[in-house]
Design a protein around this nucleic acid. Sequence first.
DNA 1: CGGCATCCGGGATGATACTG
DNA 2: CAGTATCATCCCGGATGCCG
Lengths: 125, 125
Amino acid sequence: MAQEREWRCGDPQQQRKWAEATTDALRVLEGKWKIVIICQLFGAKEALRFSELERRCEGVNQKMLIQQLKELEKDGIVTRTVYPQVPPKVEYALTEMGKALGPSMAELIDWAFMRRERMADELTP
Amino acid sequence: MAQEREWRCGDPQQQRKWAEATTDALRVLEGKWKIVIICQLFGAKEALRFSELERRCEGVNQKMLIQQLKELEKDGIVTRTVYPQVPPKVEYALTEMGKALGPSMAELIDWAFMRRERMADELTP
DNA sequence: CGGCATCCGGGATGATACTG
DNA sequence: CAGTATCATCCCGGATGCCG
């Protein structure tokens, strides 16, 4: 949308260039749980507590979740807000840069549903 | 688009349901190079030779590329075509399921460009 | 020469117990 | 509740060899 897909041309030189750009940017999303985390934060439409995030990212463990959240925070994708109270409360939300991933995540979630439907179809033809 | 984003509602029960669906589907994209591979195949608009793919996925090594391609093939995302000739020629292309990831990958690539621009802006304000 | 397999070291990931 | 610490495991990367 923003780029009008001007990058999708046949010029090898140009392709090499955006290949580099994407590889570089995708490095931020590297890590087993990052896309899952972002999808969940995006779908929730609001900040999520650590425990809630942990519940939604099925199969993740505390250590990994914390680590990946730290990296996402460092890369400017999520914000971490601490509420000084007992019991402790920490919320995570998407930054502007993180929210900009929204369209992509939305399409990804649609794909997930489409895929699940097709998988179900194959079992009952 | 396909789902009209009907999944993006406030109902906790519903959210838990699609959280599970997405987590499950995203497992297919798990692996350090899979999204990069798909992005490159999508951007190329055509089948790519192994060596060409290797060149475009900057930083990958043969072993990893082969492994990830095998998993993607097993999960029905890419097809592998062998041309019996010397020197050997093997081409990889997206399946229908793989092409369905197009919109998401396109948005992802746009995000990559947007991010690169913003990173450059921060260095020269 | 291009595509692919195998062996091994190091770093990422996971399971569990523990703390403020 | 939200982390930290420790140790086991597995994925990843580099090097090397094979085969048409």
